[in-house]
Design a protein around this nucleic acid. Structure first.
Lengths: 248, 248
DNA sequence: GAATCAGGTTGACCTGGATCAAGCATAACG
DNA sequence: CGTTATGCTTGATCCAGGTCAACCTGATTC
């Protein structure tokens, strides 16, 4: 199965009725845990929808922040650029996940969010979200959890970048993707990467050649089958084992 | 001037009246932006205080989360451990900063917080903080900003770990410390490190020997003067310049 | 004030991943 | 359908930072 191969047909269909209350991502996304009535109130707030083509920026570093975004379909990367042009990909986001939380702190976005395939997002005006979450305890708490989860996730990436070797990093990356696809009802073992080797490398603190070699190595060792962006995981345990190898 | 060389005398004094409303960190900490009356309500919440000796754990990964902590005085590190014993220091925290935000997501702490010198913290029961921030808009918004700032900070660390060379990392680290000391009214150019070379290394994704060599190099180049934990910054511009060196 | 110990420095050597370079695969396009 | 562009793979070489080891420094203890 090919996850999230959305055609424009799918997108049109999804627009027919477009509210949290009948979105199939509601258990993954912001409405998690809300009652029918409460979800209805969130619907009012999430009126604004937007489609992005592959390569489009959802927002850029330095632009005004006024809403967070929930990914309805598609795939994004966020990155930070240094003046000298160096790029650090800070994350890859998929459906049901939130984008833009970095902007709350200064009222300006501090990173760029780019669609890696045609995507659709729900814009959630932040002030209105704060207002509503002062009324709905469950919403408030869930939002706090989502922000906290982001912090925990970032700590994981730091661990990866700070202490792991190249192959461990890639193994961790693949297992993480796999697990997130599973949560969305897609195959855990057969998927298409939306990002290039260079983007993976940037995220993992490696050069694209190193990423490519690690893929080849995993294939030789029978852990995966790769052909370009198509990845099949053949041996989850093998990949997991790789992650405790440290200094050989 | 030696920042935060608290003696037990200082600590006793500070306990005489111990509330946000007359804490000199209130502009850096959670109460930021609150009115007198609102701050009074926060006072009720922040009743619990705790002292920690150097080396004490404020909390450990896996323990139940029920409060966040504001540092009244002292210095902490947070770290994450891998099963095989590898450690990643995820941050260093000083007075006025919050600890424990990682625990909101799962109701369990996901990292360890360790005092690097004798310290004092204010415990803020999280449920009560959520209750109060449903009533006080300013508090709610400021809390969101603090969480978001943490995310932005983490992105900075990823950039550092993912794309910078050893000397750039240390320069960035020193400049960041310097700037945070300044914000607390201490010298920006003369301070004592609370952490070991090994802890700096863990934070920066380097080995302690590399950290030590970078310090020596900076000294040779006249950017700083170091003697063990005592650091004096002699040339801020020089350090800043180092950060755009990339692949020489 | 000698002994112990944790932390810091420095040197010599080694290696994982970066760099440079060439060729291949696939998609996009006139 | 051939051309062009973009992304991927693989090989050869290099070097920043890791590893190992010896020594130094300053704080703590008896």
């Amino acid at each position: 199965m090919m996850p999230q191969q959305n055609t424009s047909q799918d997108l049109n269909l999804s627009l027919v009725k477009s509210a949290c209350s009948n979105c199939n991502l509601r258990e993954l996304c912001l409405p998690f845990g809300l009652s029918e009535a409460e979800m209805g109130r969130l619907d009012e707030l999430v009126s604004s929808r937007r489609r992005l083509k592959k390569g489009d920026n959802l927002y850029r570093a330095g632009t005004r922040f006024d809403a967070i975004f929930a990914i309805r379909s598609g795939f994004f990367k966020t990155d930070v650029l240094l003046e000298d042009g160096r790029e650090q990909v800070t994350g890859f986001q998929m459906s049901g996940e939130l984008l833009g939380l970095d902007g709350i702190s200064t009222e300006f976005h501090t990173c760029n969010a780019v669609a890696l395939e045609d995507s659709e997002i729900c814009a959630i005006p932040f002030t209105r979200l704060e207002n509503l979450s002062r009324e709905i305890k469950t919403l408030q708490h869930h939002f706090h959890k989502v922000m906290s989860r982001e912090i925990v996730r970032d700590h994981g990436v730091m661990m990866l970048l700070g202490t792991m070797r190249a192959e461990e990093r890639l193994a961790a990356f693949l297992l993480n993707l796999s697990q997130r696809f599973t949560a969305r009802g897609y195959s855990h073992a057969d998927f298409f990467l939306r990002m290039t080797r260079e983007e993976i490398g940037s995220y993992l603190g490696l050069k694209l050649e190193t990423v490519s070699r690690a893929f080849s190595r995993f294939q030789e060792d029978g852990h995966i089958a790769v052909q370009q962006k198509h990845v099949r995981i053949l041996n989850v345990a093998g990949l997991k084992a790789l992650m405790n190898n440290q200094r050989r």
